[in-house]
């Protein structure tokens, strides 16, 4: 009955036009922030919210909006995972889910330092940086995801980037200490 309704059909058509564009970016978004199982769950949740709140999706900024939903759903999933004491398994926000095969020592070490530096940012700072570098959003799009004003997003992103650079700069091993630094790596 509902399917005969022109409104319902029109709604389906709108979702069918919108959703396929969202799926791959959302999958990548989630793959960057959690384990594959949780990513799958949260993808389903996110699409469900998009479907139910289709009228709220801003036509010109659907993807940032959907990222915001996914971020919210992921936070919820992680909260309930924490409640069940599965912190370590499910709340991998920084570690890459698939570790690349060992490359040249130099590169590997640099990647590790970058991961460590990211981990030293606050959650919000790291998220701002990820949205900028990985999702490649503009500050105003990031504002949409994070529920900030564009101005605040811009300022906070700038600060987060500077902080990250500063950490990387300070951590850079001084010449001649290369070996001792390598030795620290577990």
């Amino acid at each position: 009955m509902a399917d005969d309704d022109p409104g319902a059909a029109e709604r389906r058509a709108r979702f069918e036009a919108l959703a396929p564009e969202l799926v791959e970016p959302l999958r990548r978004f989630l793959a960057r922030r959690t384990d594959p199982v949780t990513a799958d769950d949260v993808l389903g949740e996110t699409l469900l919210v998009c479907w139910r709140r289709l009228d709220d999706v801003p036509p010109d900024a659907a993807l940032p909006w959907a990222y915001g939903v996914a971020r919210h759903c992921l936070a919820n999933a992680q909260r309930s995972a924490r409640r069940q004491g599965r912190v370590a398994a499910r709340v991998a926000t920084v570690d890459p889910p698939t570790q690349s095969s060992p490359g040249p020592g130099e590169t590997q070490h640099g990647e590790e330092r970058l991961h460590e530096a990211l981990a030293r940012l606050t959650d919000t700072e790291a998220e701002l940086v990820r949205l900028w570098a990985w999702e490649q959003l503009t500050p105003s799009e990031i504002a949409g995801v994070m529920d900030l004003t564009p101005n605040a997003a811009s300022i906070r992103l700038h600060r987060a980037r500077e902080k990250l650079k500063e950490i990387l700069r300070k951590d850079r091993p001084a010449a001649g200490h290369e070996e001792s630094t390598e030795g620290r790596t577990p």
Partner: peptide, 11 residues
């Protein structure tokens, strides 16, 4: 910085 970060993009 963006380039370095993209090199470690888990996705």
């Amino acid at each position: 910085l963006q380039q370095r970060l993209r090199a470690i993009d888990p996705a």
